[in-house]
Amino acid sequence: MSRRLYPILNFIGHNKYWIVIILGVLIVGFLDENSLLKHARNRMLVNDLQEQIDNYNMQYERDEQKIKELRRNPKAITKIARENYFMKADDEDIFVLSDDQKPVTNNDETAK
């Protein structure tokens, strides 16, 4: 063998356990199918999905309260119809006011 390989083989011989441990951690931590990176990504995904579940449960409870209100109070149906669907009684007029900003255009024909 050449003299160049002796220091490398000597290093490997003295540190073989550390080399195996470091390679094992790298394989399990980054390259494996069940790596720590995939585990962290899945944990974040589970947290996001749990937040969505909580939001849907809150929305469900609000809707249940509205349904109970509609069953108890028949005037609540007319209130919802007026607020959400802009329905009106026969003897009234409705004016819908909008907060939308109209774009400013400079169509001043006299300045040309």
Rank of each mutant, 00 (worst) to 15 (best):
M1V: 06
M1P: 09
M1Q: 06
S2K: 13
S2N: 14
R3A: 08
L5K: 07
Y6K: 11
P7I: 08
I8F: 09
L9P: 00
L9K: 04
F11N: 04
G13A: 13
G13N: 15
H14V: 10
Y17G: 01
I19L: 15
V20M: 11
I21P: 00
I22R: 12
G24V: 01
V25W: 04
V25P: 00
V25T: 08
L26H: 09
L26G: 12
V28G: 07
V28D: 09
G29Q: 07
G29F: 05
F30Y: 15
F30I: 13
S35R: 06
K38C: 00
K38S: 06
H39C: 04
H39E: 06
R41M: 04
R41E: 08
N42T: 01
M44K: 15
L45R: 14
V46F: 11
L49P: 02
Q52G: 01
D54M: 07
N55M: 05
N55Y: 07
Y56T: 04
Y56I: 10
Q59C: 01
Q59L: 12
E61P: 00
R62P: 00
D63G: 04
D63T: 10
D63K: 11
D63Y: 15
Q65A: 13
Q65P: 00
Q65E: 13
Q65H: 03
K66H: 03
K66S: 01
K68M: 08
E69G: 05
L70W: 02
L70C: 06
R71K: 13
R72V: 00
N73A: 02
P74K: 10
P74A: 05
A76T: 02
I77G: 01
T78K: 13
T78F: 15
I80M: 13
R82T: 13
E83R: 05
N84W: 01
Y85N: 05
Y85W: 06
M87E: 14
K88Q: 10
D90Q: 10
E92Q: 09
E92W: 01
D93Y: 10
I94S: 07
I94P: 03
I94R: 12
I94N: 03
F95T: 14
F95C: 06
F95V: 15
V96F: 05
L97E: 08
S98Y: 02
D100P: 00
D100E: 11
K102T: 07
K102M: 10
V104I: 14
V104F: 11
T105D: 06
T105N: 11
T105K: 10
N106F: 09
D108A: 09
E109W: 15
E109N: 09
T110H: 07
A111C: 03
K112H: 02
